[in-house]
Design a protein around this nucleic acid. Structure first.
Length: 613
DNA sequence: CTTAGGG
DNA sequence: CCCTAAG
């Protein structure tokens, strides 16, 4: 009965424009003379031109049920219009239906859209998106139907129609969606229920586009965009110009598809997601947005998620700042969301102050892990001395492993706790859980990026913490004094944060109690049993590794001999914080001798002599 | 992994 | 404190 869409494929592309130009443009004041043709979707997904009866029926229906047009939950998007010059009677001009379209779409989409499209940019962007997506969906549905009824992908179907199945005596759900070249001013919610009639064809000269030569179109293009174009594709130029001039054409559609007479995917959410996933962009970008065929990856990627291409897909196809030529040539390319957008999308719940990500509103938000096409970028907020800075966990460029510095940072915080007060009273912004998060993130990145030269990382972030370290060093003596007497405690350091913290990379001064513990451990378990000592005596000091103990012991031993040799000033050195009581050093010396009796003979003699003295 | 020793 | 070599 009906020919399938394929039969119309060739005429789809320009017939609409021709029609518009021929039959409508001459008429004055024709407002947005976009011609649509009703089609219905056959059971196998084909697009079938509607018969005159059906058209009349639908038209009648539309006129009668302007405001209560049933919107089916899962309408089928035919995604196509059929323009056939030979049968003008089958046209339903948008003009005559605009009231309907408006009211219906308004009802259908206003709520969600209003929430999203708050700015002009968003609105525009959303509108642009719709020139992109329908094709995608269309192709997808074809792909899925996978039958002999293939529709030419090249067919431009940027003006979807939604039908109501109500009066169409079709078993397929349909929906009607308008294509509005201009829907009011951008700021004005074009889809608002209260929105006035759309102003179609705000630009006077638009209707004449069809008659223009390529050259003239290019001129128009230049006038519209302020740029030259060498594109020779009339159709493309015209559409560009139209889009550029009516920069607020929002064509809400639902994304749907049919597969074996079943609806797959779709739903209005996709629409919103689509818009949402593109956020704000400048006008130029929106204009540049690719508006033609879909990306195959969209289909490949997730057959069940047909409404739109996920962001990742766009990323992969981004190829820089394409000029119009390139863009046109590679219609399959899709634009990649900007980094800015990626960051913004990660803050969906919050309207951050945008440009400078310096000031996080909450600590929970201070760590951001945003993904962009498989790439993970992690940044974090660090609170230092009252001010906050953003520290990249990884370099955007070379994703290195920020090892030492992160650890140093952790040390800083935990030490700060030690110094300042109990963790509860501490008003530091870093909480234990967050530190854990830090570590997780770090390890994650680490594993993902693999080992990297350490030097890089070191030099990379060190300056940030230099000041901090100095502060710590100054503060350290106090802590030393206060914790020195409470010998086996040092419970300050046994905070949960510390338990989980990775070993400190940067200098962590030994407290007197630690030294005592070490000496005791050595006396108990013997020199060299660092692991034992660590396990049994320093179990609470996660930050001291056996190697640390060994190193410290080495230093102690050296100090003990030095004290013996210089015969004095053992307990209090010039460096005020390096206060190791002489009796401890003495014990160190004993133990050292016990361990290696064959030290230097002179030293040994001197030592024994001293013991006698 | 643990130790020892050099840097 | 780090790194490495050696058991």
């Amino acid at each position: 009965m009906f020919g399938n869409v394929e039969d119309y494929g060739e005429t789809f592309q320009d017939s609409v424009f021709q029609t518009r130009g021929g039959s409508l443009s001459s008429t004055n004041q024709v407002r947005n003379p976009v011609a649509y043709k009703l089609v219905r979707v056959a059971g196998d997904g084909r697009l079938v031109p509607a018969t005159d009866e059906e058209i009349l029926e639908v038209k009648d229906l539309l006129e009668n049920n302007e405001n209560d047009m049933p919107i089916l939950p899962d309408p089928i998007l035919t995604e196509g219009y059929i323009a056939d010059e030979g049968s003008p009677s089958q046209y339903l001009q948008l003009e005559s239906l605009e009231g309907l379209f408006q009211s219906e779409t308004a009802e259908a989409y206003t709520e969600n859209l209003n929430a999203r499209l708050e700015s002009k940019e968003e609105l525009m962007y959303g509108s642009q998106m719709h020139f992109t997506l329908p094709d995608t969906k269309f192709q997808i549905s074809n792909e899925l139907s996978g039958n002999e009824e293939q529709v030419q992908p090249e067919v431009f179907l940027q003006e979807p129609i939604r039908f109501s199945s109500n009066g169409c005596s079709m078993n397929q759900s349909m929906d009607v969606s308008p294509y509005s070249d201009a829907t009011g001013s951008p700021k004005e919610p074009a889809l608002s229920t209260a929105a006035p009639k759309p102003e179609f064809c705000r630009v006077a000269g638009e209707i004449c586009l069809e008659n223009l030569s390529i050259k003239a179109l290019q001129e128009t293009f230049r006038a519209t965009f302020g740029r030259e174009t060498t594109c020779k594709d009339k159709k493309w130029l015209k559409r560009r110009i139209r889009m550029g001039r009516n920069n607020s054409c929002v064509v809400p559609t639902t994304s749907l598809t049919i597969n074996d007479n079943k609806l797959i995917g779709g739903g209005q959410d996709n629409y919103n997601d689509t818009i949402n996933s593109f956020g704000k962009e400048d006008e130029e970008r929106a204009t540049n947005y690719k508006d033609t065929p879909s990306s195959p990856d969209c289909i490949k990627g997730n057959p069940n998620d047909l409404g739109y291409c996920p962001v990742e897909t766009f990323v992969d196809h981004y190829s820089g700042n394409e000029d119009f030529e390139g863009e046109h040539r590679s219609a399959k390319r899709v634009r990649k969301p900007t980094r800015r957008y990626i960051e913004e999308i990660s803050k969906t719940d919050e309207k951050q102050q945008s440009d400078e990500s310096i000031v996080p509103s909450k600590d929970q938000r201070s760590i951001q892990a945003v993904s962009s096409g498989g790439r993970v970028v992690v940044t974090r907020m660090v609170s230092l001395a009252g001010s906050r800075i953003q520290v990249p966990y990884v370099s955007h460029v070379r994703r290195s492993r920020p090892r030492e510095n992160i650890l140093a940072l952790g040390e800083f915080h935990s030490r700060s706790w030690e110094v300042e007060a109990t963790p509860e009273e501490s008003n530091l912004n870093l909480c234990p859980s967050q530190l854990n998060n830090d570590r997780n993130l770090v390890s994650g990145v680490k594993s993902a990026s693999g080992p990297v030269k350490k030097e890089n990382d070191k030099e990379h972030l060190k300056p940030i913490f230099a000041e901090v370290d100095q502060d710590i060093m100054i503060m350290e003596p106090e802590r030393l004094d206060s914790s020195g007497d409470s010998s086996d405690d040092n419970n300050n350091s046994d905070l949960p944060i510390r338990q989980n913290a990775i070993r400190r990379k940067h200098h962590r001064a030994w407290t007197l109690s630690e030294v005592v513990k070490l000496v005791e451990g050595v006396s108990k378990y013997g020199v060299g049993k660092w692991s034992e000592i660590k396990k049994l005596s320093f179990s609470s000091h996660a930050y001291r590794t056996p190697v640390d103990l060994k190193d410290k012991w080495r230093n102690l031993r050296k100090a003990s001999f030095a004290q013996t040799n210089s015969n004095q000033m053992g307990s209090v050195k010039k460096h005020g914080w390096m206060a190791v009581p002489s009796h401890i050093l003495l014990k160190v010396r004993e133990l050292a001798h016990k361990q290696s009796p064959a030290v230097s003979k002179a030293r040994m003699l001197r030592g024994s002599r001293n013991q006698f003295l």
